[in-house]
Structure formats: C-alpha cells, structure tokens
Write a protein that binds this DNA or RNA. Sequence first.
DNA 1: TCCCTTAGTAAGTTTCCGTAACTAATCTAC
DNA 2: GTAGATTAGTTACGGAAACTTACTAAGGGA
Lengths: 387, 387
Amino acid sequence: MQSAHLREHNLSAVLGALQSAPSPTSRAGLAALTRLTKPTVSKLVEELVGAGLVEEGAPVSAGAGRPMVPLRPAAGTLLAIGLEIAADHVSCLGIDLTGEELARRTVYRRIADGTAEDTLALAARLVREVRAEVPELPVVGVVAAVPGRIAPDDGRILSAPGLDWADVPVGARLHELLAPADWPVGAQNDNRLSVLTEIDRRPGESFLYVRGSTGVGGAVVLEGSVLEGVHGWAGEFGHTVVVPDGLECRCGRRGCLEAYISYLSLARQAGLSEDVRLEDLVEELARSSSRAEAIGVIGRSLGLAVANALNVLDLSTVVLSGYLAPIAEEITPIVRETVERHALAAEAGPLAIERSDHLADPALHGAARAALQPVFDHPVTWIERTR
Amino acid sequence: MQSAHLREHNLSAVLGALQSAPSPTSRAGLAALTRLTKPTVSKLVEELVGAGLVEEGAPVSAGAGRPMVPLRPAAGTLLAIGLEIAADHVSCLGIDLTGEELARRTVYRRIADGTAEDTLALAARLVREVRAEVPELPVVGVVAAVPGRIAPDDGRILSAPGLDWADVPVGARLHELLAPADWPVGAQNDNRLSVLTEIDRRPGESFLYVRGSTGVGGAVVLEGSVLEGVHGWAGEFGHTVVVPDGLECRCGRRGCLEAYISYLSLARQAGLSEDVRLEDLVEELARSSSRAEAIGVIGRSLGLAVANALNVLDLSTVVLSGYLAPIAEEITPIVRETVERHALAAEAGPLAIERSDHLADPALHGAARAALQPVFDHPVTWIERTR
DNA sequence: TCCCTTAGTAAGTTTCCGTAACTAATCTAC
DNA sequence: GTAGATTAGTTACGGAAACTTACTAAGGGA
C-alpha cells in the first residue's frame, strides 16, 4: 500500500465506523472503534467536517467528564440516486449521506408492454425530476435495481424475464440519456441490492438472504459484505434444484426452487392470475383447501434449498424477505424442520430463521444506498470535489 | 490502519508477490506487482534479505538494459511442520520457505484401533524426529490435517468418524506433548488443507474444490483464499442432499452426496471391503457389470451437488481431487452433462471441470504450507526473531 | 563506440501517524 | 462551593514510512 492510500483508508474507516455505529459517536469513541489514536481521529474528523461529510451536534453529557461532541454523517450535502425498475413500476429515490429520503418519484406501468428504450427514457426522466428537487447538491451517482441477471462490470442486463428484456446495456444507456450530466451509473440485481438494507440493520453479520418476488433470489452476506461470485450473481439460488427432473421452470430447466415457491408459481397453485396482489394471494392460499399443502410445499422446497446452501456456505442464519416475510410465521416451522433435518450446521448450534423487517421498497433503498457507497469507500474524492 | 502496520503490510505484500510470482522476480518486477516504487521495494527487500527470508541469485540478463538480480524466498532458513492424521497412517513433513521438503516421517497404523492420546503421542514423536533432522532452523509452527470437523479457533476436533474421535483438543494437546518447545500448533480439516496445494498452482483463481477420500469434502476458493464460514467448514458439501430421503449416510441423515459417492460407498457398491486399495476398487468397478451404473451414479450425484453449489456461489470452475482425480476422465462427461443441465452459470460461459494434478499427500503438504503462512502474513515477527 | 534501455541506489522531502502533555468541561464528594 | 476526579479533545513534537528526483550500474544494438 502506498502511503497516500493510508490516509484514504483511515478516512474511510472513520466514516464507515461513524455510519455503522448504532448511535452518534464522539471522536474518542471513533478512536476506540478504529484503533487509531485520538489526535489522528481528530485530524481525520476535521477534514471530514471541512468537506461537509460529517457534522457535529451539540455537546452531550454522559456521566462524569467533559461532554462528548456527537458526530454523524452530514445531512443534505450529497445526493445519491436509486432506481428500481420492476415488472409494474419504475421508482426513483434520492437520499443523502444519512440515508434520509430527499425526493421520490414513482410511475406505475407494465414494463413488459413497452420497449426497454421507453422504460429507460422514463427512468431518466424520473432521475432528472428527483435531481431537480435538490439542484444544489452534488450527485454521487445512480444505481438501478433490475430483476434479472446483470454483468456487474458494465451494468449490462443479460436477461430480465419479468421485464421481457435481454441484453440491454442499462448502465451505459442511462448514462447517455442523462447527459450532459456525467454521473456514474450502474445497475445491479434487485435482490442483491435489497440485501443492503438488511446489512445496515445487521452490521458485520453473516447470513443467507432469501427474497421471494416474482422469482426467488437472494444473496450471501459474509461479515457484512455481499458475496459477488465470478459473474456477480452469487446467492441467486432460485435455480437450486430441489426435485431432480421436477416441475418445469421458466428458466427452461426442471425442478428449480423457483418453479415451486415463486410468487408466480404460488398464484398458479392458488388458481389466480399472475397479477394478483400479495394480500389476496395469501388470503386465497389461507382459504383454499390446498393451503396446508401449499405451505408444506413452500416450506419443504425452501428448506431443502436453504439447507444445501447453508451446508456449502457454513452459515447459521437465514433471513426471509419479500413476499416470504409476511408468510414467514407460517412457513418457518416447516423450513426449520427441513433445514435441521438436512443441514450439518444444525449440529453446531442453534439455527436462526428470521424475518426481514418489512421495509417498503428494499430494492429501491438498496439501490440508493449502493449509489452512496463510493463516498464511504473513497472519501478523498469527495473531499477534493467540495474544495 | 496504524502507520506501524503499513510496513508490515508492505513487507507481506512483497514477500507474497515473490512467492506467488511464477518465476524469480527482480526488485523492479516486485515494484510493478505491488505498485510500490523502486526505492521502497529496495528497502523492503533489503530488510527481507537481511532477515534471511529472501535470497538473491546471480544477475540474469534479459534483452536490453541492466540485468536483473533474481529474488526468491530463501531456502533452508525456517522449518514449518505439517502433520497428517489419516485413517491408516500418520505422516509428518518439514518444509522451508520455498516449500522444499526438508524431512519426512510416516507410520502406518489403523488409527481407529488405538486411543486418540496414543495417536497424538505418535504424532508428537514424528514431529520431534523431523525437527531433529534440521535442529538449527527456527520452527514456524505445526499444523495437523485431520479428517473431521474442527473448531478453527482452538483446533479442537468436534468429530472425526474415520478415526473414531470426538471432541479431541488436538491443537492444545499436541502443544503440551511438544513441550518444552512452544511452537504454535493448529489443526484443520484435511480437505481444506489439501486445497492449499491447488491454490498454489492457481494463484488468485476462484473455484470449487471437491476431494473424494473416505468421505467427500471440499472447499470454496474465492480469488485465491479459502472461504471459512462461521464454523470454519464452508465447502464441506459431502452432506449436500442429492436425493431427498434417499440412502442413509453415516452422518445419520438421508440422501447425502457422501452416501452415494464416497470411497466407502463405492467399495460397498463394488462388493469389496472398506480397506480396498484405490487401484483395486477402480479395477473392480471397471470389470464389474455394474461399472457403467456406478459411474453414472457418481457422475449424476456429484453433478447435481456441484451444480447447486455453483449456482449459489456463482463459480465456473470445479477441480476434482482425491480418488476422484484418477477417475476424473470417466466421470467428467456425466458430471458436465448434469451440471450444465442444472447450473445457471453454464449460461454465462464455458464451465471448466478439471482434474487436480495428482500430487501425493496434498493434505500433508497443505498442512505444512499452512504452518508456513504466518511468515508470509507477519514477516516482521520473523525479522525480529532472526536478530 | 555511442546511445538506448532497464535495474537498482542515494539524498532529500512529504505525509501521516503516534506520544506526551496539555486544556476543556462536566460530575461528585466533602 | 470548591477541589479533585473523569472523560473529551487539542497542541506540539518526533519518527517512520514511502515518494520524488536524480543519479549510477550494466548490458545490448546500430
């Protein structure tokens, strides 16, 4: 490491500690968290405050001693923009360093009915509108959440069946549409972005994240960071085989988890249209005579896929999200029973199957959060830019 | 990071680059690899040479310009000791910084027939004998490879069915038996150590490593480092479920991969004793009328487990090792067909199924290699010790 | 033989962090 | 109410590491 990088590294460490700390923290607290000395932290904080990335609060007394000056990421100094392109809507969200929502736009529309170009033009319009609400703030970047497989390096969508898209260079095209603005624009899988909101709530933990939406996806989180994989879709285990040569899946294979427990499959099992609202679907499943059976299928399929994933990854926590969260209480006993029957990890200690707190639009928030990440990773860039 | 750690970091980077570089490298080459400047690398190398960790060769001319001074890890300056405790033997290997073998001892014995204490006493004796062959060298440490599940923090064996051991504190007990020597002693799963020899041959790559021995184990390698998992047994997918409620496995569950393709299961399928030698087993499988069937079962079971692991981990390379290596050519077509039928990664590009070069005793070499690791991670410790 | 190229070194400078000692501000005990 | 304890934060200084610039060393090719 070059010595110039040491400063960046430590600035990033201080800012990161500040963000992931549960409550406002003093310089002294940051020194303890980062294992740097107080004078060093003071200098780093001074720089961050000067650049407007950190702000001080009014001194707070906590028992004996001089009161601490609480520090927190500064509100309203930067704009990070998240996009969500889902099957039936496009949303855009602008947040600042604190994660506070600054502006939001949503347009409901069946995306598969239009062309990708139309949708990207709409998305670009929403981005410009959000940006126009806080025109004075510098923009960190734009990240789009898309339900499909994406090449992480260039933000090109390889396939997004729910949108009927294939081979769309979302990142590059959005960048063009947003010209003359020259913001970094990226695209990532919606499940992998959703997990970011969960990570914020479980800093440093390791867990398997399972999100049910039209399909079934997820992510692997190891000590607070998302596993990438060589193509950038590690953790996407909707296509884990749970029944060799079983039901046909929309991916063309047979016996995938998704063929059994995706939202679409469930709707089909309940005899409802694919556009059914979740509440109606759950209600219908609850009313129908096949409810117990459907819940059983979900629980056992999911349990088997999760057990195998836990075995390979050696994790002991699972977080259920998306449409799986509201039905978590019903399926958890069956999932738990199946996982404990199959998973080696069950021998080593208790297995946690938890429900994601049901935050609205986790993918959208995760996208904005991802757009913010460069500030935490490379604060020097933003310190120089504010000069 | 504290500034004092910067030097350690860079020393480690230089030494690591030197080790993983394919051929002897000059100071200038190291500067390019580590992105440090030439004067900085010169100073770091001077320190490493002074401590005897690196040695210079005779200048070599390569085209125009001043000839480079080739550098390489120094031979014969340190002793790292690896142990392998297998079902039928105990081996001990001493290597130096270059990986060169300095001494070796092996004793054949059915470990399950004796007590763990007896075996550990034998292991300690072999360690002392190996050490006695090169008494002048400082010992880095001892790492034991054990076929079982191990708590990585304290080297306690939770269970090793092949040895008939359970809850044996191998690391701590070996340390006691080796007193008054106060070397760091650790223990790790044999599969996870075997993969280290494969990593040395594929620096920086990501792959799934599958090793067939009495059981079936493996490891996940991401960009050159082994995935740990929360209990330290990530990648041990012998107990991936390939047939729900299928054959009973020795772990007590049903349908595990291991129940279908482990060495023991194969011997049983061929109607042979569990002690059969691999050559005989393969020959018998080849001769028997059930050969095609057995190969088919192995290929399909392994293929399914591998496909699911690849889906979750998003890898596109599999390395077959252990007893799977010699039969790799036979099973690869079936494994490939099965994996490509089930794995999402197959869509993204070619899927590599490769055979581990059949090095003898990979676990033993891996153990010695692991014992050496602290020198590469914390060279400062060893520089100070040679003063 | 001269020039070009590449390896490696030397001297001086900058940057960053740590140490030690200090000031600041509050609480507590008498 | 005041002294002392306690914790937060700053100042001044020193040292260590790495960078920049400029150099020497040593060989190849026209």
